[in-house]
Write a protein that binds this DNA or RNA. Structure first.
Lengths: 210, 210
DNA sequence: CGCCCCCTAGTCCGCACGTACCATGGCCGG
DNA sequence: CCGGCCATGGTACGTGCGGACTAGGGGGCG
């Protein structure tokens, strides 16, 4: 597993590099200074499992970059980094598909912990940042979790429909809702993202609902 | 993460238990003596990420159990254990979907290493066991591995075709071949099985947790 | 009481997926 | 040298998937 740093400020880049290499994380570290370089690196090295992405990149919007990376490499986790500590920024980052948010004011230790949590499937935001229930980590409804737990075992819509005792059309509605929530376009990506965010594999759920 | 031991011999069960708990592995350990109990435990505790399965269970065929576990809990890795060191047994175990093979003659250290490797996504077989190219862990051709590595990132046939610069029809041929080789019916299942067998960089969740 | 969200579900549609059958060319091993 | 496996693809076909649009019943909340 490797971690890719995307920051156009050489000082921060070097700092992150040092922090990560001296941490307990057993991960390779790459760094680039622009989004195109980042995309190239991701394309070339499929072992990159996490991207640390600075929001303030000259000439490039970090959120746009987050979106592009999410679309082209849906299984790669992204942590947004910013000097800015505004709740709204962290919230927007997570809502845009980031797996976490780290302000530059973090110490090396805090940063390491945050990264470990994200790698373990959690969504990390600083404690001071409180997101409302609506925009909480998973953001999925109970029904959607049930559905994705079956997606995560390779079942078809029809099979899920039988198991949940609803029409196949209803399953499709849930599946589509899950896609939107996870910002993916097909079931395989949904499963991969769900795995990464840690809400899969989940307990086999059958008839306990109603 | 927890490890489940399935062995009907109390002495071995206790031995494994002790070895695992004193090892560097930070994992809970459960043990049962039969396949039905194992299935029950898997159902109840979704945190079980690895099953150590004795091939010689009285009244139950270990390979059949492997198959059942693979079908019902496709994301749970299985290591087969046997007093028998025959190559053929190890080969058959891996071919049947096991993520590894451990002879009972292994020392505690060897066992710990083997388990760590499997948890990190590798397929472990003792060095003395040499599988021929034909019955190698995956049994997939190079092209098929390329294809499944892209399946494993949620790409569509068309996208894979573009990336490999071949017709979409050809991709379909490879995908179908992979399905047959892995004994699955759709791409999501293929990805899950591939992850479990370790020839897909599966989510770094477990790999990084230790 | 509206407003909103969730679960349910219907039709329609276009594309993706997976399979069947078949064919060519390359390469390897008996 | 020929049979076999592999990669390549072409047509065709049935089914699965996913989106667009629509909609009613139920529950929570201001």
């Amino acid at each position: 597993m490797k971690i890719l740093i995307v920051d156009d400020h050489p000082l921060f880049r070097a700092g992150f590099h040092a922090v990560l290499e001296q941490s307990a994380l057993e991960a390779g570290v790459l760094s680039v200074s622009s989004v195109p370089e980042a995309l190239q690196a991701l394309q070339k090295d499929s072992d990159i499992g996490l991207v640390l992405l600075d929001i303030h990149l000259k000439g490039d919007d970090g959120f746009a970059a987050l979106k592009v990376i999410g679309e082209r490499f849906p299984t790669t986790a992204c942590i947004m980094i910013s000097g800015d500590e505004q709740n709204s920024v962290a919230a927007r980052a997570v809502q845009s598909g980031a797996s976490g948010f780290i302000p530059k004011s973090f110490t090396a230790d805090e940063m390491t912990v945050a990264i470990q949590k994200v790698l373990a499937g959690e969504v990390f935001v600083p404690e001071t940042t409180n997101l409302t229930a609506a925009e909480q980590p998973n953001g999925l409804t109970l029904r959607q979790l049930e559905v994705i737990s079956m997606l995560g075992r390779g079942f078809s819509n029809k099979e899920i429909a039988r198991a949940l005792d609803v029409a196949e059309r209803t399953v499709k509605a849930h599946v589509s809702a899950v896609f939107e929530a996870l910002n993916v376009r097909n079931r395989t990506q949904a499963v991969l993202v769900a795995q990464r965010r840690g809400f899969l594999p989940s307990t086999p759920v059958y008839a306990n609902a109603r």
